[in-house]
Design a binder for these strands. Structure first.
Lengths: 168, 168
DNA sequence: GCAACCAGTTGTAAAATGCAATCAGTTGAG
DNA sequence: CTCAACTGATTGCATTTTACAACTGGTTGC
């Protein structure tokens, strides 16, 4: 997709992240805290292939959604970070998650985070985005709650998994 | 896309509307009030081709996002309507529009609606969705303002166009 | 009767995607 | 120092999706 089809904001957004993988990569970075190529490749639910992942990471770096730095602990490793622009995709993901949760056959363990995020609303999203700004941009956040949104989502996810393994 | 990649709500949403055209069709139905095949085909900014449009309409009807009825005034015409599920894509579109408006080179006339919708926030979206429920589902809405959200967006769009044609 | 309009379908080329194998450099254990 | 495991990718090839133009069979209004 080289040529621009129109100056419509929805269309332009789709031209940048409107394929079947880009937003899943962003999702894994945001919700799964994946930062390395291998993590994104092997720990994804859907099994992205390495050439697609390499292409998407490259494209999203070019688009200003991600940045890539060298990992000081390993000469070959790169660390991918979200930019502010990337962090601001969270509300898009949250709305998509809410819609999918409501209308599609979502699995229980993968749906719990969508549910919490949907119930939490824009306020929770803003808090989560502040946490992401700290993690990815090094911007200290003011409001510090006991548990971060990220931690609460992870806890809920693990909780469902544990309950499913050992049903009452 | 027949097989499901995972039960993640974001992934499932992408599997349903995560291609480059489906959401543009929904956008034209919502914001452009297009209801017929030809309208969607010829009045779209991006120039969708007829086979893609036919396929997406068919798919979205199967998915429960749209319904198709015969037009009583013309034996060949079909009228496409949004379902509740389709109407609830509005927040997704609104967030994508807001993101595109903020971060991508959006044209002035096509950006004004995104701007207003972004400033209006979830309250305005809810009002707009009620209007869509009336138009597409025949559900009368309570709160009736002087101008509907749809009308206000259209007025703002025409305003920008007029200003651009005859600059001060 | 006929031109314009209606919702699509068909054929074919180009592009994107999926998959497995492979690559060259890095690291850490022995 | 050797070597297996790991790193971020790249390559080749089959399949799928998309793009573009022409076309179909039918309807409508003049």
């Amino acid at each position: 997709m080289d040529t621009q089809r129109s100056g419509c904001p929805i269309n332009l957004t789709l031209e940048v992240v409107g394929d079947k993988w880009s937003l899943l990569v962003v999702r894994d970075i945001i919700f799964g805290n994946r930062r390395h190529f291998r993590e994104l490749l092997t720990k994804s639910e859907e099994g992205i292939s390495s050439n697609i992942l390499a292409d998407r990471l490259k494209t999203m770096v070019e688009q200003g959604i991600l940045t890539r730095e060298d990992d000081p602990t390993h000469k070959q490793k790169g660390i991918y970070s979200l930019t502010e622009q990337g962090i601001e995709l969270l509300p898009v993901l949250a709305q998509m998650a809410a819609w999918g949760f409501k209308h599609l056959p979502v699995s229980e363990e993968l749906g719990i985070r969508a549910q919490l995020l949907s119930e939490g609303g824009p306020k929770m999203w803003a808090e989560f985005m502040d946490e992401l700004r700290e993690t990815h941009l090094g911007i200290k956040r003011r409001k510090r709650s006991k548990l971060t949104v990220g931690e609460r989502l992870q806890a809920a996810y693990r909780n469902v998994l544990a309950r499913k393994r050992k049903p009452a």
